[in-house]
């Protein structure tokens, strides 16, 4: 097998639970997916479906009372494949990977920078922490790191980079702030970029610019990106492969065209139906997914989607369907397509 076919990141049966006073919340409940080198993977799902928690688990940034209870996260480094779950969250190797090899673009660029440190200062700090990714044989100096920061600002399309590195985040507009955040994420030449709804907090025009920038940078550096969003339109623009999540489980995954044109899982179909179309009839109510997202303490037994599913069968409330290949390129966890259930 060639190395190209081997995944960069491989998540297997990941489970994350939060122990709260009210009870146990299983935020991620047996999620599996792969990210290939240089691939843009889109992860879609409603709010609270475990997208962000999964991403934090990859970076080992789950705060108490959350805990990874089961599963493996294999990440391919230069030195070989490591299981991130086995690494100590505050240990040296994990900190080396974090920011160095896997970088995060957070949701809110407003609050993601410290307001009392200049943005340049915070990026310089990241570069100095992973100085070997720029200069393997010696430590970079502060002024070298500053020069790199200026270059990064220019790369992400921030004008007057020499002056802008000395500004505070609250002096920048939303778009510039997100560009600065992208510059920080790219500052150590990561192999994998996790973009956690990077455009939800900014206006639509700026959003289009930021997406174009990310596509451009992805093509230039061939960085793999996990792109998390609840916006299917953004997924269609950005991703080549899509993972659809619901209540902490993967419902369906496959290449972007197949997911959009031939969705297998009833949840994916329902999601796609709820997108307004330019060519649809006007003054007709947009189809919605019936029912509401269950409260996290009351997960339905069996398939998590069965209480809202239009095609629900008797078996759906008893057994949990496995994620199995369906057709040539997709995988779905639904008894409409196969009989395989998870072991109880």
């Amino acid at each position: 097998m060639s190395t190209e076919a081997q995944p960069l990141l491989s998540v297997r049966d990941l489970r994350v639970s939060f122990v709260l006073d009210e009870g146990l919340v299983r935020a991620v409940d047996g999620t599996s997916f792969d990210v290939m080198p240089g691939q843009v993977l889109g992860v879609v799902g409603e709010s609270g479906c475990g997208k962000s928690v999964t991403m934090r688990a990859i970076l080992q940034l789950i705060d108490r009372p959350g805990r990874i209870t089961k599963g493996e996260i294999h990440f391919r480094r230069d030195s070989g494949v490591v299981d991130l779950v086995q690494l100590s969250p505050r240990g040296g190797e994990m900190r080396d990977i974090r920011g160095g090899e896997i970088a995060l673009i957070p949701q809110e660029p407003m609050a993601a920078f410290s307001p009392v440190h200049t943005v340049g200062d915070q990026i310089v700090e990241a570069i100095l922490l992973h100085s070997h990714r720029w200069q393997p044989d010696r430590k970079l100096s502060r002024s070298e790191a500053r020069d790199i920061t200026v270059g990064l600002f220019r790369d992400v399309g921030i004008s007057m980079p020499e002056q802008r590195i000395y500004t505070y985040s609250w002096q920048l507009s939303g778009g510039l702030r997100q560009r600065a955040m992208i510059a920080m994420a790219l500052s150590c030449k990561p192999r994998l970029l996790i973009a956690d709804e990077p455009t939800t907090a900014i206006d639509v025009t700026t959003q289009a610019q930021v997406l174009a920038l990310l596509r451009d940078l992805q093509a230039r550096y061939n960085t793999a990106i996990i792109f998390i969003t609840h916006d299917l339109g953004v997924i269609a623009q950005m991703a080549s492969y899509v993972v659809v999540m619901y209540l902490g489980r993967v419902m369906e995954e496959g290449p972007v065209d197949d997911i959009f044109h031939a969705p297998k899982h009833p949840y994916t179909r329902a999601l796609l139906r709820s997108i307004p179309s330019l060519y649809g009839q006007t003054r007709v109510a947009l189809p919605v997914i019936s029912g509401a997202l269950p409260h996290p303490f009351n997960r339905p037994p069996g398939c998590p989607f069965h209480p809202r599913c239009p095609d629900v069968m008797e078996r759906c409330s008893v057994a949990v369907p496995r994620l199995m290949p369906v057709g040539t390129s997709q995988l779905a966890s639904c008894f409409l397509h196969h009989e395989e259930a998870e072991q109880a």
Binding site: L61, M94, R98, A111, E125
Partner: peptide, 15 residues
């Protein structure tokens, strides 16, 4: 609990 703490952790800083 502020997001900038997560950003700093994601950079790989010592706690």
């Amino acid at each position: 609990n502020k997001p900038y703490v997560v950003t700093a952790r994601a950079k790989g800083m010592k706690e």
